[in-house]
Amino acid sequence: MSSREAILSAIRGIKLEPKPLPEIPEFGIQGEIEATFVQSILGNKGEVLSQAEFETWLTASNHPKLISRSTHFSDLSTISLPEDPHQLNDLDLAILDGQFGVAENGAIWLEDADLGLRVVPFIAEHLVIVLNKKNLVATMHQGYERIGSATSGFGVFIAGPSKTADIEQSLVVGAHGAKSLRVVLI
């Protein structure tokens, strides 16, 4: 007998009482959606900028290797997407469009089509996600409603920069992935 069969038949041999699968009610949030979203991102150690603030920041900073896949800032890229993700090791900045953001926790949803290569938002030294204010939802429940039955091979909720508190519980931003997250709300 294969292990698959062994495991499944072991389970079949156990008398299990039926238990219903509950329906999930509509939960919302108390506060105003945009303000709550901004608070959540700040709490996760990210920043929220307006388009003008972002443009000022970008001109003042220096990012030799930059990939922008945002439709709002499409001509900013200084390099094109390579075939081999390893070549992105020294990527300074990635600018991506997020599909929607969740107010209660700041999580922003991105899929393969938004990323180009899956490694982009993780390997970039700094990450900018552009989000339309219209695309904010209250909680994760509405978030999954939006995802629906989408079939992207990969999708991710990003809620802040890479962080760790593994040394004596002191929070350090920039563990392995992006050292900063800026969300541009337009």
Binding site: I24, S40, G43, N44, V102, E104, N105, G106, A107, F122, T139, M140, H141, G143, Y144, T151, S152, G153, F154, G155, V156, F157, I158, A159, G160, P161, S162, K163, A165, G177
Partner: peptide
């Protein structure tokens, strides 16, 4: 997942969600 991602990080470390929540399909 809506239920479980709302509970997991809040219960674990008191943060509203983990910063990376990756969904692998293919």
């Amino acid at each position: 997942l809506g239920i479980f991602l709302r509970l997991l990080a809040r219960s674990a470390t008191g943060q509203p969600v983990t910063n990376y929540n990756s969904h692998f399909r293919s």
